[in-house]
Simulated scan of single mutants.
Amino acid sequence: MGDVTVPVSAIGDAGRLAASVAGDVGGVDVAGPAGEIAAALPGSRSAQVAASAAQLWRAEIANVTTAMQDYGLHLADAAAAYADAEQDQLRLIAAASAVVPGPAALVEQAAAELPSRIREALG
């Protein structure tokens, strides 16, 4: 696989979207219809199974919602860490640039020293 470049902002956006979807999913009542079956057939085996299914579905939705919220938070944390690392690298580059002259400064320095080196060579 080749290198993949992802903007840090896209990671943060994905985290916010995951958290938003978690909120939407958490509001869905998938157990409601099963609860209606249990209420319509009180005391029956079907009511017991429907009530059990409703309880399981509620728990699963809660687990999925929590996992999506955690995932969103981890993405947001990753985006912040990547942004901090990029800023640290930019600071290091700026500091190194201040110590090591760029190409233009090296050319100027060489041009300034050139006549004296020619005189030294000709002696």
Rank of each mutant, 00 (worst) to 15 (best):
A40E: 12
G23N: 02
A38M: 03
T65W: 04
L17E: 04
V64Q: 05
L41A: 15
L17V: 02
A14P: 01
P7I: 00
A22H: 05
V4K: 11
D3F: 11
G2V: 10
L41G: 12
H74N: 12
V25A: 07
G2S: 13
Q69F: 05
A38D: 07
D70A: 06
G35S: 10
G23F: 03
A34Q: 11
G72Y: 02
V4P: 06
V21N: 06
Q55C: 08
V4G: 07
I61E: 05
P33W: 00
V30Y: 13
A59C: 05
T66R: 13
V4A: 11
A40I: 08
V28D: 01
Y71T: 14
I37K: 07
A14E: 00
T66W: 07
G2Q: 10
Y71D: 11
T65F: 02
A14Q: 01
A54D: 07
A54V: 10
S20P: 02
V8R: 03
D70I: 00
D13I: 04
Q55T: 15
I11K: 07
L17R: 08
A53Y: 10
A62D: 13
T66N: 14
R45C: 02
S20Q: 12
A62C: 06
A38N: 03
A67Y: 01
S44R: 11
P42C: 01
E36I: 12
T66I: 05
V21I: 11
A39N: 06
S9D: 02
S9L: 01
A31N: 09
G2D: 13
G12M: 07
G15Q: 00
A18L: 11
G43K: 09
A54N: 07
T66V: 09
A39R: 03
I37G: 08
A10D: 11
S20E: 11
A31I: 06
A67R: 09
A50K: 09
P42W: 02
Q69W: 01
A59I: 06
Y71M: 10
R58N: 14
G72N: 05
W57Q: 15
E36M: 12
A53D: 09
W57N: 13
A34W: 12
A19V: 13
R58C: 05
R45H: 05
S46H: 10
Y71N: 12
L73R: 15
A18W: 03
V6A: 12
L56K: 13
A39E: 14
G23Q: 04
G12F: 04
P33V: 04
V64H: 01
M68N: 01
A40L: 13
A34D: 09
P7S: 06
R45Q: 10
G72I: 03
S20W: 04
V28Y: 04
R58T: 15
